[in-house]
Amino acid sequence: MQSNPSKPQARAARPPLILASTSAYRRELLQRLRQPFAVQAPGVDEARRPGEAPRELALRLAREKALAVASAAGPAWVIGSDQVCACDGEILGKPGGFDAALRQLQHLRGREAVFHTAVALVDPQGSVQTREVPTTVRTRVLDDARLRTYLLAEQPYDCAGSAKSEGLGIALLQSVRSEDPTALVGLPLIALCDMLAQAGFDLLADGQA
């Protein structure tokens, strides 16, 4: 039987898009692109390897997170991301509580830190693109009383560097330098949009938004 040339052909379903992260910050950022996606925990060991530079650590973990989820998900587009904060050669992880967060802010006072934010995109065939976007942040010189007030108000204990730039934490910052304003929050959307475009996603196509 011949097909009817006047009948529109059904569009092939695109493999699902998955965010390899349980971070609420990354989920909220990815929602800005108005693409349906699922969320899956990557279950990757985030320990630093001996001698590993902060930038390389961020890139490796972003790649490993995306590949870990892709290996279990079947054909899919998988986004992995990671962020590493470094100040004066020291990596600052998530503080986890008030005391550790206060020590981080005291260490950062008047100093510059670089937040290395990496993103990886795995395609349904298992190929990987990676990008890293650095953000340089200088923190204001503030007394301990003001640092304590901030920490009690926002409790940013799940944030490397102990401040949420998208919230009251902006009051701690003297300057922020980056080519992508979303990188500091945890997912560099400008870089990700470039990667998705190269992969054939048209985020602004009619009917897609």
Score class of each variant (00 low, 15 high):
109 R>D: 09
117 T>Q: 03
115 F>G: 04
32 R>D: 11
46 E>D: 07
198 Q>C: 10
27 R>W: 08
30 L>I: 06
80 G>S: 07
163 A>P: 10
207 G>N: 07
11 R>M: 14
106 Q>C: 13
39 V>K: 11
81 S>A: 13
129 Q>S: 15
97 G>A: 07
17 L>C: 04
33 L>E: 07
26 R>M: 02
176 V>G: 09
204 L>M: 14
133 V>I: 12
67 L>W: 04
157 Y>R: 01
45 D>E: 12
156 P>D: 09
146 R>H: 15
48 R>Y: 09
139 T>L: 15
130 T>K: 06
169 G>T: 02
66 A>R: 01
83 Q>Y: 09
181 P>M: 09
126 G>A: 04
93 G>Q: 11
174 Q>P: 08
73 A>E: 06
71 S>T: 12
51 G>M: 07
131 R>N: 08
21 S>G: 08
120 A>E: 00
77 W>I: 07
127 S>A: 15
41 A>E: 12
145 A>D: 15
24 A>R: 12
56 E>W: 03
198 Q>R: 14
47 A>K: 10
112 E>F: 11
87 C>H: 06
189 L>I: 05
202 D>C: 08
180 D>A: 02
161 G>F: 04
79 I>L: 10
35 Q>G: 07
207 G>F: 01
209 A>Q: 15
91 I>A: 09
130 T>D: 11
23 S>Q: 05
30 L>M: 03
172 L>W: 00
59 L>K: 06
127 S>Q: 14
108 L>F: 04
3 S>R: 15
56 E>N: 09
138 R>K: 12
150 Y>L: 01
2 Q>P: 11
209 A>P: 11
12 A>S: 14
152 L>M: 13
55 R>A: 14
105 L>Q: 06
152 L>D: 14
50 P>V: 10
59 L>M: 14
168 L>P: 02
18 I>E: 02
198 Q>P: 05
176 V>P: 07
129 Q>R: 12
82 D>K: 03
183 A>P: 02
197 A>L: 10
129 Q>I: 06
108 L>D: 03
12 A>R: 14
192 L>Q: 03
206 D>Q: 14
67 L>Q: 14
13 A>Y: 11
203 L>K: 01
11 R>D: 12
34 R>N: 13
30 L>P: 01
134 P>G: 01
83 Q>M: 01
16 P>F: 01
193 C>W: 00
99 D>W: 09
151 L>E: 10
50 P>Q: 10
81 S>L: 04
169 G>Q: 00
57 L>C: 15
92 L>T: 04
140 R>H: 08
46 E>W: 02
17 L>H: 04
171 A>H: 11
35 Q>E: 15
